[in-house]
Simulated scan of single mutants.
Amino acid sequence: MNYKQLAKMFTSTNITKVAQGDLSLVQEIASSYPDLDEVETLSDLFEEAYKLLCRHYPNEYVVKNIIANNILLGTHSMNTASMLSELRIGANKADCVIINGSSTCYEIKTKFDSLKRLPEQLAAYTSSFDRTYVVTHEVHLDALLEIQNDMQSFGIMVSNCRNQLSRRIIAPLNTNFDTGLMFHTLRKEEYVDIARSVTGSEPDCPQTELFTKCKDIFCALDTDEANEQFKRVLKHHRRNDHNFISNLPKSMKNLGISYNIHKTNKENIISSLLNCNQLNREDVNVFSIHERKAV
């Protein structure tokens, strides 16, 4: 079976189509995989398709979704924690970062990934977050243990087909922050927020000088204070949409976190999940849900 095709169900492109009432890919998949042939509701189709991916094609989406369910929602609470996806740190993008009272980076290396860039990635992440984990498949474990033996600044987790994560090595607490690197992660509203918090007002300078002025303020802070400010603004300005995520089935939690979905599309996705119960009927009108709402 082509499980890579099945994974397309969970892409941003297909989720946008679902929000627009286009279930063509969903219906094609429902009729192409014997294990999904009897599934009728859209919500159940995503759930059953996700189970197949967990067993046969544990790609990055699957691992991020496991982290979202087991750590963000299972250990923490969306009221007190935020999960950030693809967070730029220097020349790299951290796969997942969860910010609660502390910041934890989760760099994912699936069975389909190479470890070639990992040392460079770890150098950036272990300079920016309180703790850093590499979340991996068993196939990479021996190689990762060798890397960790030489570079003991990160921990290791292993994901499995039962949607579980096991800690093999606990990540140490970082005490060596690179504030210059961290600052370049921040958006304008975030670094201005920090400058205002530190000095009591927004810097009085031309817009062309604002970035440099705010960077000087941030980098002059004690590293512990800089880290606290860094976590505060990321958690606040990039907080998750709790209501949307809570209404998604377990298989779709990560898309509610990782994808930039317009408010109207979010409403349409939830409506489709609640109302689409005719996936396998030949006369199904894939636009009927949204047309009915517009009438």
Rank of each mutant, 00 (worst) to 15 (best):
K188H: 00
E228Y: 08
S166W: 03
R238C: 04
P172G: 05
E225A: 01
F230P: 10
N240D: 13
D178Q: 04
L173Y: 10
H236Q: 12
S197L: 07
V192Q: 14
L186N: 02
S246H: 14
E189Y: 02
A220H: 14
N174P: 04
A195D: 02
F244H: 15
F177Q: 10
D216H: 06
T175W: 04
L186Y: 03
E202K: 14
C219G: 03
T208L: 04
P249I: 05
T223I: 05
N227I: 07
N240Y: 11
T185C: 13
K213D: 04
P172I: 12
G200V: 02
F211S: 13
H242P: 00
E202N: 08
H242M: 14
K188Q: 10
Q164H: 10
R187Q: 06
L234H: 06
G180R: 08
R239F: 07
A171L: 08
T199E: 04
F218H: 15
V233F: 08
R238E: 02
L248W: 03
H236N: 12
T179A: 01
K213L: 03
T212S: 15
K215R: 11
H242S: 11
D224R: 09
T199M: 09
K250W: 09
F177P: 13
R238D: 00
F183V: 02
E209I: 01
K235Y: 05
I194V: 13
D178M: 07
D216V: 01
S246M: 15
E225I: 00
F244T: 13
S197E: 10
Q207P: 07
C205I: 11
L210P: 01
T199A: 01
D204N: 12
L165F: 07
K213A: 09
F218Q: 14
K250V: 10
Q207S: 15
I245S: 04
K235H: 00
E225F: 03
T175F: 09
L173W: 11
N247K: 14
H242C: 13
L173D: 15
N174G: 05
S166C: 01
C219E: 12
R239S: 15
T185I: 06
H236S: 14
N247M: 13
H184N: 15
A171F: 06
N243S: 12
F183Q: 05
G200E: 06
N240V: 09
S197V: 03
K188P: 00
P203I: 03
K213I: 09
D241A: 10
E225C: 00
C205K: 06
Q164R: 14
I217V: 10
E225M: 04
E189V: 00
N227R: 09
S246Q: 15
N247R: 15
F211V: 13
H184V: 02
L234I: 01
N227F: 08
I170L: 15
N243E: 11
P172W: 05
L234Y: 04
L181Q: 02
Q164S: 12
A195N: 03
I245K: 02
L221K: 11
L165C: 07
P172E: 07
E190P: 12
T175E: 06
D193V: 00
F211C: 09
V198A: 07
T208S: 15
A226S: 09
H236Y: 12
C214W: 07
P249R: 04
F183P: 03
K188N: 07
S246T: 15
D241Q: 08
P203T: 02
H242N: 12
D204Q: 13
Q207W: 02
P206M: 09
K215A: 09
